[in-house]
């Protein structure tokens, strides 16, 4: 599904990723852990194609296509989803309107019929109940005045509706209380499936109590320094990043 080879990337001319290798197959959930400043968010943005994140070497292949050659929206339409660490507020744009626009963009891209308002509302109703999102939230402007938990739940709803092939979750667990964390974990688990790959980026192990990954990778100074099974997360929890012999980075 996703194959990253020797990826080097800079932001503002400053190298952040330094030869990162990673391969995720369909049906797998991988966790990427690492201290602050290790390049976790940069990895997420490079996969999504954000401007300002310059790839200087290496390749990213998604379903045997050159992902780096695709525009941001084409990546999204062909099934790459990024759950944001800080979901953006868009005043005046209703959450339901935004969701419908996004879902229909993807459907159009796949040559499917776009949903009309009624069909879409039925679909949303089905999905949002599972995430504990009430109808009132759908009528509010996108993320405007949402609590941290509401914003993350809304990200999970978008993911559920867009049904991506590759989901990248950028510290979706940060700043959540235990109930909200549970909702997010349930959202992720509900979407696990043989056709879908997930990359869960997180600083803490606690999300991984609820979402048991197939593989865990430790990112430090822009490269994967260690990989293992889900036990690696617990090891990190006990000994900390320093226990792995990793210097905390300057930004930490």
């Amino acid at each position: 599904m996703l194959k990253i080879d020797n990826l080097h990337a800079s932001v503002d001319g400053k190298p952040i990723l330094n030869g990162l290798d990673l391969e995720v197959h369909a049906g797998e959930v991988h966790a990427v852990m690492g201290p602050n400043g290790s390049g976790k968010s940069t990895l997420a943005y490079v996969i999504a194609g954000r401007e300002g994140y310059e790839v200087t070497d290496g390749s990213v292949t998604y379903r045997s296509e050159d992902l780096l050659a695709m525009s941001v929206e084409d990546r999204a339409k062909s099934g790459v989803f990024l759950a944001f660490q800080y979901p953006v507020e868009i005043p005046g744009v209703g959450s339901a309107t935004f969701l419908k626009t996004a879902v229909n963009a993807a459907r159009k891209h796949r040559g499917e019929k776009e949903y009309d308002a009624m069909e879409f509302l039925r679909l949303v109703k089905e999905k949002r109940a599972a995430l504990g999102i009430d109808d009132g939230m759908m009528r509010r402007a996108l993320n405007v005045g949402f609590s941290g938990g509401e914003k993350k739940r809304n990200e999970m709803l978008q993911m559920a509706l867009l049904e991506p092939a590759l989901a990248v979750l950028d510290e979706t667990d940060s700043g959540l209380d235990i109930d909200a964390l549970k909702v997010v974990a349930d959202g992720i688990n509900a979407l696990r499936g043989p056709e879908r790959a997930m990359l869960v980026i997180t600083h803490y192990q606690r999300l991984l109590d609820h979402v048991v990954p197939d593989r865990v990778h430790v990112l430090a100074q822009g490269r994967i320094v260690r990989s293992g099974g889900s036990g690696l997360a617990h090891e990190l929890e006990r000994s900390g990043y320093a226990g792995l012999g990793l210097e905390p980075s300057a930004a930490a």
């Binding site: 999204a76 996004a102 963009a105």
Partner: peptide, 26 residues
């Protein structure tokens, strides 16, 4: 940030601008 967020959801840049502006004018 707003444009990137919309585009990451598969909404083309011009459609994203239209969406944001329509929200502003609602």
């Amino acid at each position: 940030d707003q444009l990137f967020y919309c585009r990451q959801r598969g909404i083309d840049e011009e459609d994203a601008v239209a969406l944001i502006v329509n929200g502003f004018c609602r």
